[in-house]
Amino acid sequence: MKKIISSKIFITVLVTVLIIIVIIFSSIPGNPIHSLTRPLSVVLNPIQNAVSFVGDRIGSFFSAVTEGMDIREENQELKEEIAKLEYELSQSEEATRRWEELKDAFQIKDTFEQYEIIGSSILTREADEWFSVIRIDSGSKDGLNFELYDAFAAVDARMNLVGRVISSDNDTAKVLPLLHEGFSVSAKVDTVNGIVVRVTGENQLKQSGLCKVSMIPEGMSLNVGDVLVTSGKGGVFPAGIPIGVIDSVHNDSELNRYATLRPYTNLYEIKDVFVMIPEPSDDDSSESIQIASDTAT
């Protein structure tokens, strides 16, 4: 028995079975296994941050050397631009004050007013085309709580869609990028009564930085240059988040009409994302109060 247990084949089979159990368990949505990676986060995040910091400093040094002259000219231009922008800022502040007054007066709500926006830095990029989920430095301690919500929308600094947060531990979370073949979102053309379509990631288009637009309603058509925003259907993404523009339209076959979309955001160029966390609405709190009072009675 002891001989069997210590044999290489037995150990290999045992390890394989254990890992397969972990894989199956982790594939169940909402599983708690991701919270078990917290000890890893504690050790790995500082190391990864240090590596990124050193890499950035080295990169900056070489950029400074090679781009020194350009930077000097750019600096002069930027100084002039700052002066111009300061003037515009003072103008904008006045306009903002007036907008706030008007908004209160007419009870206009911002599109994303019911969402708390949390800024996060991208910690890690994809390892290859299959290990392609990215990691950000916000976690359940920042409100990314998967016991309360199924997913969270991730956007860039211009509020363009980046992807969706699919799991979190205490300090970090994983984001499924827009171009990933598993990504899917209901979208609409950004016009009054714009048609509703489905945007998905696709293997073939991913390398060109494009997504597939399918489920185009019969008798309707998309045009190159049409802007798509989230439709709000499905409940994961709030309506109105810009996704991208239609790059090409394929109507060759009536059964397979599709278009390609070029997303506004380029994951390779951004370092920060913003996660939208729904704030409990008044209805929710009133419901809670109602439930509480029902329970009390």
């Binding site: 890992i19 982790s26 909402g30 296994i33 991701h34 199924d150 997913a151 969706r164 598993g182 994961v236």
Partner: peptide, 8 residues
């Protein structure tokens, strides 16, 4: 509707 991040 609900993709999962796999571990293992």
């Amino acid at each position: 509707d609900r993709p999962s991040a796999l571990i293992g």
